[in-house]
Simulated assay, not measured.
Amino acid sequence: MRIMLFILTNIGIIVTFGIFTNIVLPLFGVRLEGTGLLLVFAAMFGMGGSFISLLLSKKMAIKATGARVIEQPRTADEQWLMQTVARLAKEANIGMPSVAVYGGQEINAFATGAKRDDALVAVSAGLLQNMQRDEQEAVLAHEVAHIANGDMVTLTLIQGVVNTFVIFFARIVANLVSNALGGRNGQGLGFFGYIAVVMVLEVIFGLLASVVVHWFSRKREYAADAGSARLVGKDKMIAALQRLKGSKETELEGNLVAFGILGKGRELLATHPSLDDRIAALQRL
């Protein structure tokens, strides 16, 4: 279903842009040359970059956080982690993820990976030191729910779509500005002026696109919380979220922030809902 969604979404983009550039714009006397080729390159870079990042996400996450993947448990905590993740993965009908521990002092955990049956669940040292076992179990269930829901692939798909929009429309608008100044293909602005306008537009459109991506990121946190409640009970998940209120801000960066249980950012650019909102949603279940 995710593969079909990916294909249909990209077909939808191509059809939409085709109608826009070949029907809508000509009605206003605007004709753009080379938009089909531009769209192909926008999709290649927009979608391709996102999915390459997803395919490398496990290795990149391990390197970025300095996490150690547990091959053979060294302590009772690591033994419990492996056993608990294995049980939760079986209940969620996914393959056993790799389990890792990293040295962050915040109370946090994240999941990543391109496949439901080949993912990674990592927890911080701060989580092991500052959470009770029931709370740790709920956090692990939350991350397993992310994997079971296919959130990594879906978020990558949405990021790729908005990347395509940003790349494509930044150049379309820059061409319109250039045409208005009496030139074509950037000649009206001049080469460096055209590049400068494209860069500014990509920043503006990228900011607007990130609002969409972060909105989805917040929605999927509610779903993962509910998934944890189904696996271990909502009281445990509520207790875990209450405990997170005492954590320092996440040390994760980049895409890992969206995949952690503890978010970052404010208002429209927040990767996660507030902890109070998440607790209230669980209480309503």
Rank of each mutant, 00 (worst) to 15 (best):
G188R: 01
G188N: 02
V123I: 05
L54V: 00
F191G: 14
K58R: 14
V153S: 13
A61F: 09
R68Y: 13
T156P: 06
S57K: 07
A76N: 13
V161H: 09
A119P: 08
L55F: 14
V144I: 12
G150P: 06
L157M: 13
D77Q: 14
A119C: 07
M82C: 12
V177Q: 04
G150M: 10
N108P: 05
L56D: 11
L127A: 13
T164V: 11
Q72G: 07
A109G: 01
T112Q: 09
G193D: 01
A92C: 03
L140I: 03
K58A: 03
V69Q: 04
L155W: 10
A145M: 02
I195L: 15
A145R: 04
F110N: 00
T112V: 12
G150W: 13
E137V: 00
A138M: 05
F169R: 12
T65W: 08
K59C: 07
V123G: 03
R68Q: 15
A125V: 06
Q72A: 15
Q136G: 13
R87N: 15
E106R: 11
V139N: 07
G182D: 01
G190Q: 04
G188A: 01
I147M: 03
E106V: 05
G104R: 06
L128A: 08
M60F: 13
V69M: 05
M96A: 14
I107P: 02
M96W: 12
V123D: 01
W80C: 04
L54R: 00
M152F: 13
E137T: 02
G104T: 05
L54P: 01
D77V: 11
Q79L: 15
